[in-house]
C-alpha cells in the first residue's frame, strides 16, 4: 500500500457535474481506504451541489503517458489531416453536407 508519512494513500477524484456529462478530474486527497476517500471527496469537492456522481481511484492505479504532451507518442495522429471533415472540398451548392 502506498503510504505518505500520514499513512494514507493518495486518491484522484472525479466528479460528474450532472447527468449527461462525463466525470471530470477535480483534484486529489488522502484517505485510509476507498470508503473514506469517497466520503472525503463528497465533503471536499461537492459542498455546493457540484456533482451527482463521484469516482475515487488510487493514484498509483493510474497508468499515464509521458509528461511531455508534444512527444512522439502522439505523432501518429499528427499527419492524418484526411481524418478531419475540412480536408474534403465540397462545392458550396451541395446542401446538407
Amino acid at each position: 500500500m502506498t503510504e505518505s508519512k500520514a499513512g494514507w494513500p493518495l486518491y484522484e477524484v472525479f466528479v460528474r457535474p450532472r447527468r449527461g456529462l462525463n466525470h471530470v478530474h477535480v483534484g486529489s486527497l488522502h484517505a485510509s481506504d476507498d470508503r473514506m476517500a469517497l466520503l472525503a471527496a463528497r465533503d471536499l469537492y461537492t459542498r455546493r451541489n457540484e456533482g451527482v456522481s463521484l469516482w475515487v481511484v488510487r493514484s498509483d492505479a493510474i497508468t499515464a503517458s509521458t509528461p511531455d504532451e508534444r512527444d512522439p507518442f502522439f505523432e501518429p495522429s499528427g499527419d492524418k489531416v484526411y481524418r478531419h471533415p475540412t480536408f474534403y472540398d465540397i462545392p458550396e451548392d451541395v446542401p446538407h453536407i
Binding site: M1, H25, A64
Partner: peptide, 18 residues
Amino acid sequence: TERPATAGQHAPTGEHTE
C-alpha cells in the same frame, strides 16, 4: 494482493478542469 508502492508525488491526469 497489495499494490506496489510509489513515491508520494503524483500528477493529476488530463487537461480538463470543470
